[in-house]
Design a protein around this nucleic acid. Structure first.
Lengths: 340, 340
DNA sequence: CTGAAAGCGCTTACAG
DNA sequence: CTGAAAGCGCTTACAG
């Protein structure tokens, strides 16, 4: 039983396809009576518009793309992604739009995919996560006139809408905790902190590092920085480095980029007999359920990532509908949770 | 700069649209020389086929749908979903297919969405997770002739391909652990176990419960079952019930449906002074990083969920290409990890 | 092997 | 307000 087409509905209602189309789409210029007749016919036949035909004649798809240049391990374990995806989804679903997700090995592959999506007219717009200092996606987006919204701490391009993330504030919030802890230590204890961040290619990592160094320097606190590529097999290596800093430089606190790394670090340090937070405090810049099931629980900067997803989706929709670049800050209500 | 169309390529190569189409699609019946000329023209112009036009004329979309009747909280925190999605993605990407994901509030909404996708010819097929005893999606799939593949412990319909999950085996594997632990207890200790499962509407939950009761009964072990809707705010309630069973019925071990619930239960029990596993052993039927960062680490049945996703995707692709129902068992290599 | 034509199922000026 | 026609960008019989 092939699904009925507009032609079937038009015949059933005794009007032309054009009129049926207008009636069904609420376009002005159709008498109330025929509009009703058409609607009844469509309902009787159980007509639903063909997605592809609509996309072809309207030149818009109702689909938004998200290419993720992360391994499926990372995507599967880092809470950030699922929360983000859930938020995007939630907002798009409100207006019957869909999200197309594709995992790619690296940012080059991501750029290629974006270019292909643009050429195929596959999506109405794309979301950009993990903004980089030199971001190859920018050129692709600009060159193809692709509508895009990024989550980023600084602007990527005048053509890309942005959900601005205040990384300075985020770093300040967690440092406040660690500095306070340092103040409680005996006079002769070391005053040294570490930022265990992601790869320096990322905007947010460099923004955090800069702020971290500034603050430490202003407070007369020693500062070290290590960059991780977040791969799980690296955890024990990072642990050794953290341990060395603790023992040799008197490091007493670590700011960790994400919940996963923080939790794993906590476990490894525990094995090495380091007490957290007494010997070494850990604060994560991303919160999740992971931080609540370790012992002790991990102190983490909490933000509503799902809400960030909703905001980002809303931004892109507005960008497309109004044809203008939009910016927003968010999500609000960030707070450090836990007492580690 | 509008993207070039097939007509542009054909003009550039000096052939008809039809010939250009055949040449580009590797259809037989085109001379090698024109095929080359067309390919060169396409490359020169940077032509990429319009997705919508192709979908319309081919009556197939290259898109597969996954509707998830779970709250975005659950999807964002339960490791199963992301791993599954990553696996589906990974397999589909190999053949340039895409995954369309949509979150819906409940299984009724999911059924409606599937019906709409079918009517809109939006997807080539759909994936079905969380199979239910009375599953309303079955009728929708059958009625609309939608290609579907489910992950399920028993068949949903002769029209639906299936990745068979052996829940009996899964329960046996974890019970083996718990029974062995019981055997080490002093003579006068209680011999009683609990299965903390999801909602009884789910196939897998009932399959597990049945097996759990059978095994316990065969071993002369007392058996209790509690059903949770997995909502986080319920954890303390479940903890109280578990505690009561431990104290009053002498329950010494709990099989928990998933990693998240197990981890939370462990934390709460710890607060109440219950030692795990000495007083009460916990084994989870789903493994994840969560199980490794608690202390003690949680013993869990590990399976490669990403591989399950790949298998499920492959199943649906084959189902569609060969037009026949396919079944598979998997993924293999399940093993209980940890010593809790 | 190649071309002209029809068709996929819609939408959108353009006449009337 | 309504209809006939053209068009969106492809694919696919059908002739030649």
């Amino acid at each position: 039983m092939p699904s009925p087409t507009l032609a079937d509905v038009a015949r059933e209602a005794g009007v032309s396809k054009g009129t049926a189309s207008k009636a069904l789409n609420g376009v002005t210029g159709v008498s109330a009576s025929t509009r009703e007749r058409v609607a009844a016919a469509a309902a009787a036949l159980g007509w639903t518009p063909s997605y592809a035909a609509r996309a072809l004649s309207r030149a818009s798809t109702g689909v938004f793309g998200l290419a993720l240049a992360r391994s499926s391990e990372t995507v599967g374990t880092e809470s950030f992604f699922m929360a983000m995806v859930a938020g995007l989804e939630e907002e798009l679903a409100l207006t019957d739009r869909a999200l197309l997700i594709q995992l790619v090995p690296d940012v080059e592959a991501e750029s290629e995919l974006l270019a292909r999506w643009a050429a195929e007219r596959r999506v109405d717009g794309v979301f950009l996560l993990d903004a980089r200092l030199e971001d190859p996606r920018t050129a692709v987006v600009e060159h193809n006139g692709l509508a895009a919204a990024a989550m980023a701490s600084s602007p990527l391009s005048p053509m890309i809408s942005r959900l601005a993330v205040d990384e300075d504030l985020r770093m300040d919030l967690v440092l406040e905790r660690l500095m306070a802890a340092l103040d409680e230590l005996p006079e002769d204890a070391g005053r040294h902190l570490l930022y265990l961040g992601g790869l320096p290619q990322f905007q947010h990592v460099m923004a955090r590092e800069r702020r971290f160094r500034e603050r430490c320097s202003a407070a007369g606190v020693g500062a070290s920085v290590l960059h991780s590529d977040y791969q799980q097999h690296d955890v024990s290596r990072w642990t050794r480095e953290v341990l060395a800093l603790h023992r040799e430089a008197g490091c007493r606190g670590v700011v960790v980029d994400n919940d996963l790394l923080a939790a794993q670090l906590l476990v490894e340090l525990g094995r090495d007999g380091v007490r957290v937070p007494e010997d070494l405090a850990i604060v994560a810049l991303e919160d999740s359920i992971l931080c609540t099931v370790t012992s002790p629980a991990i102190t983490a900067l909490h933000r509503d990532t799902r809400e960030a997803g909703r905001l980002l989706a809303r931004l892109l929709v507005r960008h497309i509908e109004e044809g203008t670049l939009t910016e927003a800050i968010g999500p609000g209500g960030m707070v450090v949770r836990g007492s580690g």
